[in-house]
Design a protein around this nucleic acid. Structure first.
Lengths: 133, 133
DNA sequence: CTTGAACCTGTATTTACTACAGGGTCTAGT
DNA sequence: ACTAGACCCTGTAGTAAATACAGGTTCAAG
């Protein structure tokens, strides 16, 4: 039974120490037991759950989506199909974002290409940004 | 000299009406003259400037970056090279974001591929998210 | 027994808006 | 002239997801 305090949990997960408290307040990480003096004591379950949350966040799930995923697991009545659906919906969203960013990349690159980088106070980029409609 | 109130400026730019006030408070959109009763009166300059801001935002520039771009223009002493540099730096950032999202796409797609979408309460996606290391 | 690291709490800040509440004003129709 | 409703004004609060700080305990090492 290896227990640890907040600082160690932070180091072991790579999570900011304040974020742990934030997740607890949000109710996504359960309140851990405390020492007599009030220090939080985390166990293997907390470590596992926090890692899960951090991994979801890295994958671009919102905290609410992460919460839903965990609710499925906690309820213990989820099906593979449900989880798969959530994952695929998120993939769609990620792909939409990629497309949006590609358009931005293209527009900016085109603008920059028209620009000769000269020393004069007149720039096609600025002109384009100011252009009507 | 066509002047308009806040509502019309909002409609003509597609900007939320509250956002106009926000930009004014932020000092990125200049305080317009007012009618005797205190209603804001915008002219062609404001329309142009707000459009510029909105276009920068669409291209993913932060409000601070947009402010810097406008500061260059306002200072009237900018060079094409400066603007080009800002644009290209932003392109780099956009491309980094695209790469990050592509990794996420890949990871999620791989995970979903391992999932048979069955009706059982056991899912490789969840397992992977919970996995150690 | 002291000192400094680590912990506790509550609150403020960040980005870029958006959304209210509680008023004043303008305009079109009667 | 009057009134209804659309518009405008202000200040403030809320959103996501943390992060940072102030001011105060507690723990561990020497």
């Amino acid at each position: 039974m290896k227990e640890m305090k907040r600082g160690e949990l932070a180091v072991r997960t790579g999570c900011n120490i304040e974020t742990i408290r934030f997740y607890e307040k949000e109710g996504i990480l359960p309140n851990p037991p405390r020492t007599a003096a009030g220090h939080r004591l985390y166990g293997a379950e907390h470590l596992k759950r926090l890692s899960f949350i951090l991994r979801c966040r890295e994958l671009g799930f919102t905290l609410e989506q992460t919460r839903s995923l965990l609710a499925l697991v906690d309820g213990n009545d989820y099906t593979c199909a449900e989880v798969r659906e959530a994952a695929l919906a998120h993939v769609d969203e990620v792909r939409r974002k990629i497309e949006d960013l590609k358009v931005i990349d293209q527009v900016l690159s085109d603008m920059a290409a028209k620009c000769d980088g000269g020393d004069v106070p007149d720039c096609p980029i600025i002109d384009t940004l100011f252009a009507e409609e």
